[in-house]
Design a protein around this nucleic acid. Structure first.
Length: 277
DNA sequence: CCCGGCGCCTGAGGGC
DNA sequence: TGCCCTCAGGCGCCGG
């Protein structure tokens, strides 16, 4: 569930605590969650390294810069959590990695479904990593402009919802924010991308920027599993207009929100405000 | 090349 | 009460 706003919130909440701390030891309970290097090397290489002042993010990836030019790259996928805490805090079930820190605290990685991955790489290689290399622009960067969006829509022969979920198109959108953006732009999720008008593209651009900025402002959507780096929930779930609201009245017209399956996922939309055309 | 669909995982929730 | 099925969805991978 962590999409861009949730990952950004984790970054901001961890940054203040981790800056300057060194890793003194690592407990690796589930080596499978380490994507690279080999588990023993991962543990050996990260031990003694210090977290830099700033943590970064690219799309849904957390970029944790360390001393000696290393970077810990983390993808939380669906249920992953990174929590900074006291060692006394009871171990949450499915805790797979514990980083012991030189102030006596811990950074823990837990993940019920074990989809999340950690990777330790030279920082200069981050931009070339699979999953990051071909990633589209950050939705809040100037590079993600109306013109860019319109041009991409014309180029891609797919349904608009699928395109919004494609990280090569724009970084960081997942199922929740994609549905919310389409609702705000009044565009049916099954519309073909090249069929959107210039006006609709402009509206969609605005909706994407607003919904992502709103998500960050409210510290993410805690719909199911998500909490930030201090274990706190976000509040954007209270501002969702369509996601997980099947049968509930549309806030614009009162018609019940509907749910369809699209590319294997649920898509929520208002049948009156978002016409198929 | 580009798109759609499946598998990976566990737990929650619904039907019977 | 318990069992089984479906669903949750990000992304790598494969096939058409």
């Amino acid at each position: 569930m962590p999409e861009l706003p949730e990952v950004e919130t984790v970054v901001r909440s961890l940054e203040q605590h981790l800056a300057g701390l060194a890793v003194t030891a690592v407990d690796l309970f589930m080596p499978e969650v380490i994507r690279s290097p080999k588990p023993e090397q991962f543990t050996e290489q990260i031990t003694g390294k210090q977290f830099q002042k700033k943590l970064g993010r690219r799309g849904k990836y957390l970029l944790m810069h360390l001393s000696e030019g290393l970077a810990l790259v983390v993808h939380l996928r669906m249920t992953g959590r990174l929590i900074y805490c006291d060692p006394e805090l009871p171990l949450e079930k499915h805790t797979h990695v514990i980083f012991h820190l030189d102030n006596g605290k811990q950074l823990r990685f837990a993940d019920v479904r074990r989809f999340g991955r950690l990777q330790l790489v030279p920082a200069i290689e981050v931009s070339g990593l699979a999953g990051i290399k071909d990633m589209g622009p950050e939705p809040l960067d100037p590079e993600f402009s109306r013109e860019f969006l319109k041009k991409e829509l014309r180029r891609r022969r797919t349904r608009i919802k699928s395109l919004l979920l494609d990280q090569c198109f724009v970084a960081g959108l997942g199922n929740i924010y994609a549905d919310e953006a389409l609702y705000r732009a009044k565009i049916h999720p099954e519309r073909l991308a090249p069929d959107l008008t210039t006006r609709e593209a402009a509206g969609l651009h605005k909706a994407i920027v607003e919904v992502i900025a709103g998500g960050i402002e409210h510290r993410g959507t805690s719909f199911r599993d998500y909490v930030d780096g201090e274990g706190r929930t976000g509040s954007f779930q209270h501002h969702l207009k369509v996601y997980n609201r099947e049968g509930l009245p549309c806030s614009r017209c009162g018609r019940p929100i509907e749910r369809i399956k699209l590319a294997g996922r649920s898509s929520y939309y208002c049948p009156a405000c978002q016409k198929p055309k």
